[in-house]
């Protein structure tokens, strides 16, 4: 079995079979990660560059761990800011790095489309670790793995994503991926934080009404509210946001979804988009997501990398 895609740029046009293969492969790596020696030789001799143009802690560490546990050689490159600000073009950066003979590039960048652009500048395999507000496919894949582990199947599963959908690459990747997998996905937030043209996301329902979004949901995912959005006039105040869209135990109970899996891609604004008792409660999968992140990224690296011919032992 192998993937139809050559790079992981996003989940928008990734077929169901590929997503299923990645999730199934990640299952195998979850088992590897539970061993005493959490390392397999599948990426031995391969060099992976983690190219981060935007601050990131967990995603970068997660990728780095995934690469190391596959025995790949890893190099980290971090630089904040665009080409214009840096004084070196992105193309020059990637070509210089490629000249050092590398195999795969994991890239995060504040501009949407950069992973796609890199496929035009280099022959390396490109994995998107977040581009602008466009996509963050490995996050959505680890989310789907976490959901599937809890509820068995994604098809028909009611998932509610609540918060700043407009600026969220996590939401977009989940919208594409979960729609492909046939989940019953609802997105919810203030009208000004929802993309104006939601009809493009087939199979996704949107509402401003939190109670409707939560009703009988099996998964509730809160997204980080960036505090600076308030000053750009997108919503009146943190206080109003919390009152209308904050995830609390009472809201969950009222909507009949006290057993819903609680997720958050982090970092959390405790007491704003989600209360601490819910984030740390018995149904919280927030740290499980982080653990699954490593297994999922191992699966993606393994399936896209040259280690394709080896099996996950």
């Amino acid at each position: 079995m192998s993937l139809t895609i050559k790079h992981l740029l996003g989940l928008r046009s990734v077929p169901k079979e590929d997503i299923t293969l990645i999730l199934d492969t990640a299952k195998g790596f979850q088992e590897v990660l539970s061993r005493d020696i959490k390392k397999v030789p599948t990426l031995r001799g391969q060099t992976v560059v983690n190219l981060f143009f935007e601050n990131s802690t967990r995603t970068r560490i997660s990728f780095e761990l995934a690469e190391k546990r596959l025995s790949g050689d890893t190099v980290n490159f971090s630089s904040a800011g665009s080409s214009v600000k840096k004084g070196e073009t992105l193309k020059d950066t990637i070509r210089n790095i490629e000249a050092m003979k590398i195999d795969m590039v994991v890239v995060r960048h504040q501009s949407a489309g950069v992973p796609k652009y890199l496929t035009e500048c280099t022959n390396a395999v490109i994995i998107n670790a977040g581009d602008g507000s466009n996509e963050h496919p490995t996050q959505a894949l680890l989310d789907m793995l976490t959901m599937r582990d809890r509820w068995g199947a994604l098809k028909g599963l009611k998932v509610a994503i609540v918060g700043d959908i407009l600026h969220s690459r996590v939401a977009r990747s989940n919208m594409w991926g979960l729609a492909t997998m046939g989940a019953d996905l609802w997105v919810c937030g203030p009208e000004t934080l929802i993309p104006q043209y939601m009809q493009e996301f087939k199979g996704v329902t949107y509402t401003n009404n939190l109670d409707k979004a939560l009703k009988n949901a099996k998964v509730v995912m809160a997204l980080r509210i960036q505090l600076e959005r308030q000053s750009t006039g997108l919503f009146p105040s943190i206080n109003e946001y919390r009152a209308r869209w904050g995830i609390t135990a009472q809201r969950l109970e009222k909507s009949g979804c006290s057993d819903a899996l609680i997720m958050h891609p982090g970092p959390i604004n405790r007491g704003i988009e989600i209360t601490t008792d819910v984030a740390d409660g018995p149904n919280s999968a927030i740290l499980t997501q982080v653990t699954n992140g490593v297994a999922t990224r191992m699966a993606v690296l393994y399936l896209l990398g040259g280690g394709r011919e080896h099996a996950a032992e």
């Binding site: 928008r12 949407a112 489309g113 602008g132 507000s133 466009n134 996509e135 407009l166 600026h167 969220s168 690459r169 977009r172 993309p195 104006q196 043209y197 939601m198 009809q199 493009e200 996301f201």
Partner: peptide, 13 residues
Amino acid sequence: NEGRISSMLGFKG
């Protein structure tokens, strides 16, 4: 342009 595609790609339109 602000529209379906900008919503899809997460670009400000």
